[in-house]
Design a protein around this nucleic acid. Structure first.
Lengths: 194, 194
DNA sequence: CCGTCTTCTTAACAAATGTCAACCAACTGT
DNA sequence: ACAGTTGGTTGACATTTGTTAAGAAGACGG
């Protein structure tokens, strides 16, 4: 299993990590592959791991009255998890599935708690991850409240171009809170301004 | 300054905190009062403190083209801050102002970093706070994407009753992403179901 | 190479939500 | 007690967004 990417990720977030820390950490990793369409997490299941994405693209999504509503897309060199479920060890409200073939490096809840106990450097890491995720999701909330659908689409283009390139439009539509038809009209309007 | 409430708060989040830890922490607190309408944080300012609310009620809000859009309400026995600004020490995108007369216990960024360095127990605390905030804000994002305005209002009634009781309706309206007029109609519909 | 999915687009129409303006009730300070 | 302010409601109307249905373009497996 290739650990270069994930090591770089940790080194960036906690530069004080020593070789011994890294070994304590990496010995607990589990490798996993997902085919396109496979689920990492299902609604109702308790999320037992966080997954670093070596390769591929996944989405978080809700199934409401037969309709899928995407709440996020994550690709290489980031962690993905139904993190609320992971943290509280209660059933996940959302699904996570692979939009592309994926290679994941998993770390279990028990191992993470163990690391927290044995070494404060991992507390720091856990804190920074949570802080980062907080900033990400609160900016998404802000966008939903303060921007029009068209502006939200523009902000995806600007700040998450990989989503435009790799995610089907009807999923992006639900992510910005509109229907696929409406997004199609917005795109038409943008491409041929008056 | 009354520290009973904030001490209880810390003890709940980190039961392993010792008396010496508490003293290291509480010696850094600063007390502050806010009158109704006063600002704790202004758009563009860097947030230098986190504030524990001993008494009162504050809101986070954006000013967009002359219109206020509220993103959250926080009352007694919780922390409030423009946390993204605090964490990154960059200008805040949002305002925070007092909806009632407030008593706050403040902790500065520098003191917090100092505490993180000197004692891992505060890292744990910081991590749990960030995790908690992440869960809160991501559930708000989910509500915005998956619920109708009426359902969002119902969920405020159910899960944040203090908001219904203590926050003006036109602010609640922006919080759930609709106009005050529309909220008024929703309330009428709810109160006299067909 | 063919059919079948999947995804995207378009149009007509319907429903939800916003805008504007007026009015009312409650509260506030003098 | 009064005038001003704030917050809430209502109605008519405009705009935005959703719904439904149909069709087109491209991807993909057999």
């Amino acid at each position: 299993m290739n650990l270069i990417q994930i090591k770089t990720y940790y080194q960036k977030l906690i530069p004080t990590m020593q070789q011994a820390d890294w070994e304590a950490l990496s010995s607990r990793f589990n490798y996993r592959q997902l085919k396109k369409g496979e689920f990492l997490t299902r609604q109702g299941e308790i999320t037992r791991t966080v997954s670093f994405i070596n390769k591929g693209l996944l989405r978080m999504c809700y199934l409401i009255e037969g309709k899928e509503i995407c709440t996020g897309f994550v690709c290489e060199n980031e962690y993905i998890s139904s993190y609320a479920s992971f943290l509280t060890q209660t059933p996940s409200a959302e699904n996570i599935d692979a939009l592309e073939e994926c290679e994941l490096v998993n770390l279990s809840y028990e191992d993470m708690q163990q690391l927290y106990k044995t070494n404060p450097v991992f507390e720091t890491f856990g804190r920074r991850i949570a802080e980062y995720l907080f900033i990400m999701v609160s900016s998404q909330t802000t966008r939903l409240l303060t921007l029009t659908p068209e502006e939200r689409y523009q902000s995806v283009i600007e700040y998450q171009p990989f989503v435009i390139q790799r995610v089907p439009q009807y999923m992006i539509a639900s992510y910005i809170g509109i229907t696929p038809e409406h997004l199609s009209r917005i795109r038409k309007k943008i491409s041929s301004p008056v």
